[in-house]
Amino acid sequence: MALDSPQSKKETTARQKWMSLLAGARKERLDTLFPRDRLPSFTYLRKPETGLVMLRGRQGGTGSPFNIGETTLTRCSIRLTNGTIGHAFVMGRSHEHAVSAAVCDALLQGPENAQLTEAVITPLARERAERERQMALKNAATKVDFFTMVRGDVD
């Protein structure tokens, strides 16, 4: 399959990265970076719809899988007028978020890639990293050193 060639693997990796960032973005932030009133024309291959994904964990954290419980997921697939297909799979129930993410996914596969990467993907990646850094800094202040007291059974 084409997916196995190194070239398409690289493309897959880039696409995985932007799809992750689009899915993980706060909807309000995505709307600012990629305004919904300026979406290009497209048709739905699958209108946005909400369903469930069963989340899996591992026994003992690293062992065999087990089912934890479900999460809501909204998916959407669109086709641009030039034929490019975009998909979105986004945790939660926001149809608007899934539509924006699917359109953005399609555009990123075409000539708009460089412009959209700069306008949408790079800021989302930077903000995610910054959010994680801030969280780590706050948590670092709660790092604790416990001293063990010597038990008092002395001579």
């Binding site: 994904v53 069963m54 591992r58 994680e132």
Partner: peptide, 20 residues
């Protein structure tokens, strides 16, 4: 009331962004 789309990849708690 919602359809099931599938199962996630097992989450990796070893890669957790730690808060506690």
């Amino acid at each position: 009331t919602l359809p099931r789309y599938g199962y996630s990849t097992p989450i990796e708690t070893s890669d957790m962004l730690i808060r506690r």
